[in-house]
Amino acid sequence: MKKRIKHFLIFSCGWLCVILGIIGAFLPVMPTTPFMILALGCFAETSPRFHAMLLNNRWIGGPLKQWDQTKTVRRRTKIQALIMLIIAFGFSITLLWGHIELQLMLLVLAAVMIGFVLRLKEAEPKYED
Score class of each variant (00 low, 15 high):
residue 2 K to F: 06
residue 3 K to D: 15
residue 4 R to K: 15
residue 4 R to M: 12
residue 4 R to H: 12
residue 5 I to S: 06
residue 5 I to Q: 10
residue 6 K to W: 12
residue 8 F to C: 02
residue 9 L to V: 10
residue 9 L to G: 01
residue 10 I to K: 04
residue 12 S to V: 02
residue 12 S to Y: 04
residue 12 S to C: 08
residue 14 G to I: 00
residue 15 W to T: 03
residue 17 C to D: 15
residue 17 C to F: 10
residue 18 V to W: 01
residue 19 I to G: 03
residue 19 I to A: 14
residue 20 L to R: 12
residue 20 L to H: 04
residue 20 L to F: 14
residue 21 G to L: 02
residue 21 G to C: 05
residue 21 G to F: 07
residue 22 I to L: 13
residue 22 I to H: 01
residue 23 I to W: 03
residue 23 I to Y: 11
residue 24 G to D: 05
residue 27 L to Q: 04
residue 29 V to A: 05
residue 30 M to C: 10
residue 30 M to S: 10
residue 31 P to H: 00
residue 31 P to Y: 00
residue 31 P to V: 00
residue 32 T to C: 12
residue 32 T to E: 05
residue 35 F to V: 00
residue 36 M to K: 02
residue 36 M to F: 15
residue 37 I to R: 04
residue 39 A to M: 07
residue 39 A to H: 09
residue 40 L to Q: 01
residue 40 L to M: 15
residue 41 G to K: 01
residue 42 C to E: 08
residue 44 A to E: 14
residue 44 A to Q: 13
residue 44 A to H: 14
residue 45 E to D: 06
residue 46 T to V: 06
residue 48 P to E: 13
residue 48 P to Y: 07
residue 50 F to Y: 14
residue 54 L to G: 08
residue 56 N to Y: 07
residue 56 N to T: 14
residue 56 N to D: 14
residue 56 N to C: 08
residue 57 N to T: 06
residue 58 R to M: 12
residue 59 W to I: 14
residue 61 G to P: 08
residue 61 G to D: 13
residue 61 G to L: 04
residue 61 G to F: 08
residue 61 G to E: 11
residue 62 G to E: 06
residue 62 G to D: 10
residue 66 Q to R: 00
residue 66 Q to Y: 10
residue 67 W to P: 04
residue 67 W to K: 07
residue 68 D to S: 13
residue 68 D to K: 07
residue 70 T to I: 03
residue 72 T to Y: 11
residue 72 T to C: 10
residue 73 V to N: 08
residue 73 V to A: 11
residue 73 V to R: 09
residue 76 R to D: 09
residue 79 I to K: 05
residue 79 I to P: 04
residue 79 I to S: 00
residue 80 Q to G: 06
residue 80 Q to D: 06
residue 81 A to I: 00
residue 82 L to E: 15
residue 82 L to T: 05
residue 86 I to E: 09
residue 86 I to M: 08
residue 88 A to Q: 02
residue 88 A to F: 06
residue 90 G to R: 03
residue 90 G to W: 05
residue 91 F to N: 04
residue 91 F to Y: 15
residue 92 S to M: 13
residue 93 I to H: 04
residue 93 I to M: 14
residue 95 L to T: 07
residue 97 W to A: 13
residue 99 H to A: 05
residue 100 I to M: 08
residue 101 E to M: 05
residue 102 L to K: 07
residue 105 M to N: 06
residue 107 L to D: 03
residue 110 A to Q: 01
residue 112 V to A: 07
residue 114 I to K: 00
residue 114 I to A: 03
residue 117 V to Q: 03
residue 118 L to D: 04
residue 119 R to P: 01
residue 121 K to I: 10
residue 121 K to V: 03
residue 121 K to D: 09
residue 123 A to Q: 12
residue 124 E to W: 13
residue 124 E to R: 14
residue 125 P to M: 10
residue 127 Y to Q: 02
residue 127 Y to N: 00
residue 128 E to M: 06
residue 128 E to K: 12
residue 128 E to C: 02
residue 128 E to N: 11
